[in-house]
């Protein structure tokens, strides 16, 4: 249990460290949040800076931010003047979560069968063929696949909407685009662990006893082979969430990833920080949950699974 407690404690420390890091990084940025296309007379700029406490010394700004954060307040948005960061995150997060969870389901549905079948016969032509196809998932990044998919399925075939987030249909193309690289990744993890599991003595014993293949795979191989996949789900979920930054940008979906890019380009300090904190906490929670589940499933696996993970972008 103390191992689990340590993980939780470390997650909290990691969280604080990330906040500090991002806060400092943003204050180093050149250009202020009020540099618009039109001029700002010095008096007015001074008014604006005072209104957002930007005229205070850095430590004071930092403490102000932390104490607000402790109350769950991410502050006002510098650019989206009519919204607080909380309001923006509350509106954008469901979109990002719907996108991410949809993509996770798709990635699992496609990646698990591919990985299992390939891992049953590693090195064979079937394995290489399947992995070659699965490899395409990572080779077609969203910046290429997105525009092509929209052109084909929305404009030419008129099956799906081109952009927006009004209905389930609007999420189909983004979800598939986001899921593809993770199909590859999940297939790779399960392929490796299946192959490894097959070499374990008791599986061979099971074969020796003449049990039917289907039963062996379902009740003996899969449960063990899935442990690394479960461990991988932490980083995978985190990766899907950050991957949604790219996809939301390409499809102009109103999720927090899109807010992030716009805010970073516009130097909207508070919104950038807010979104980064939300992402970081999601990431940390995903990783923590995966760790805890693995600890609970198989304490011995702990040392191994961590080292196995190679994430796509």
């Amino acid at each position: 249990m103390s191992a689990a407690l340590t993980r939780v404690l470390l997650t909290v420390i990691a969280f604080l460290a990330i906040i500090t890091l991002v806060f400092l990084l943003l204050r180093l940025a050149p250009g202020g949040p009020f540099d618009g296309e039109r001029r700002l007379p010095p008096d007015i700029e001074a008014n604006l800076r005072a209104a957002y406490h930007l005229n205070e010394p850095l430590p004071q700004q930092y403490l102000r931010y932390l104490s607000a954060l402790a109350r769950g307040d991410l502050g006002p948005s510098f650019r989206q003047k009519d919204f607080t960061v909380n309001e923006l995150v509350a509106r954008g997060l469901p979109v990002s979560l719907a996108l991410g969870s949809g993509a996770l389901v798709v990635a699992l549905l496609l990646g698990l069968p591919l990985g299992l079948v390939a891992g049953m016969q590693p090195g064979t032509r079937l394995d290489r063929g399947l992995m070659g196809v699965a490899g395409l998932g990572i080779a077609l990044p969203a910046i290429i696949l997105g525009p092509v998919a929209v052109l084909v399925f929305a404009v030419k075939l008129d099956w799906l909407p081109a952009a927006g987030s009004d209905s389930a249909a609007h999420f189909v193309l983004p979800i598939v685009t986001l899921a593809l690289p993770w199909v590859t990744a999940i297939a790779r993890v399960l392929r490796t662990s299946t192959a490894e599991t097959l070499s374990l003595p008791h599986i061979r014993t099971a074969y020796g006893k003449g049990l039917p293949t289907r039963r062996i795979v379902l009740s003996h191989v899969l449960p063990l082979a899935l442990v690394p996949v479960i461990a991988f789900l932490g980083p995978a979920t985190a990766g899907l969430l950050t991957g949604s930054v790219v996809v939301e940008q390409v499809f102009e979906l109103p999720g927090i990833g899109r807010y992030f890019v716009q805010a970073a380009l516009n130097r909207d300090y508070t919104l950038v920080m807010g979104v980064t904190i939300v992402y970081a906490s999601l990431l940390l929670i995903c990783n923590l949950l995966a760790d805890l589940i693995v600890l609970w499933l198989d304490p011995r696996a702990r040392a191994r699974v961590k080292t196995r993970v190679t994430t796509p972008t």
Binding site: T11, A14, I18, T242, V245, A264, T276, L283, L284
Partner: peptide, 9 residues
Amino acid sequence: VLYGLPFIL
């Protein structure tokens, strides 16, 4: 700690 950083961001 660094693992918790959303890297593309």
